[in-house]
Amino acid sequence: MDQALGWWGVPLAIAAGTLRGSAPFLFVSLGECLTEKSGKINLGLEGTLLIGAMSAYAIAYLTGSPWLGVITAGVAGMMLGVIHGWLSQQPRVNDVAVGIAMIIFGSGIAFFLGKPFIQPSAPPLPALQFGAWSNLPQVQSALQISPLFLLGVAIAPLMQWFFRSTRWGLYIRAVGDSPDAAKAMGISIFKVRMLCIVAGSFLAGIGGAYLSLYYPGSWNERISGGQGLMAVALVIFARWRPMQCLYASLLFGGAQAIGPALQSVGIDSYYYLFNASPYILTLLIMILTCSPKRTLNGAPGALGQ
């Protein structure tokens, strides 16, 4: 660590921040994308993210195996998913309201059970080193990539293909776009939605495991910082397309690094503004692409009904 990078540090830090920080957004937004494609909204993924983070950290600490922690996080997420899936499909139950209840429920459980695990240090997930070709320690550190992130990047095109080219994908789209038509096809709306919500919650739980076991790599009650809710909004931003969820997650992950990176090279004014840059960008894109004459492009027809 002899030489400073100076201005080159800014793009490097943003790139590194993208590789490090976007996985939670990615997992939650893919999970929410799957859920919303089936026509239900699950705002409770913020709670799922927290419970995933807590259970992954706790199990990794107790058993010494971070991968077991990742699996547990997914399973814990699925349990919340079952509750949401069942509750939100009862007649005259609003899925947004249930989702808000699930945020409070999930975070409450996570805080309660997670109390003894704030102090201990759990074994972190291993990272793959892609930077051995460079002799700059900064680049080597930036190119430490978690296999979980690569998994998430692989899931995005898979999910896109799944929606477009498989029978099951068609079922989900049918249920989300026109439940009556799906019913006529002989598809159980309840089962399809339930499975989508549970699978989506599994992914969100994995996103939580990434937070507590890889980056920033510790469990405390503020660990999510609202990332779960932002990821839900990302799905709208990404127009319900998994590949665009990937790009949007990378954008938001990288944006988290802008403020600190600019301050570290001496751009020290307006850091609140830089920290807010991804939100400003989202607002701009939403304003530019919205239209009063039609619903949002790509929105499932029966979303939230």
Binding site: Q3, G217, G225, G259, S264
Partner: peptide, 27 residues
Amino acid sequence: QVIFTGDWALPVREAEATNSMADQGID
């Protein structure tokens, strides 16, 4: 070198700030 994160508990930004500093040769 000072980096203000903007609030008392923002784990991701605190980690980013520390990483940026390490990149800039702060030891």
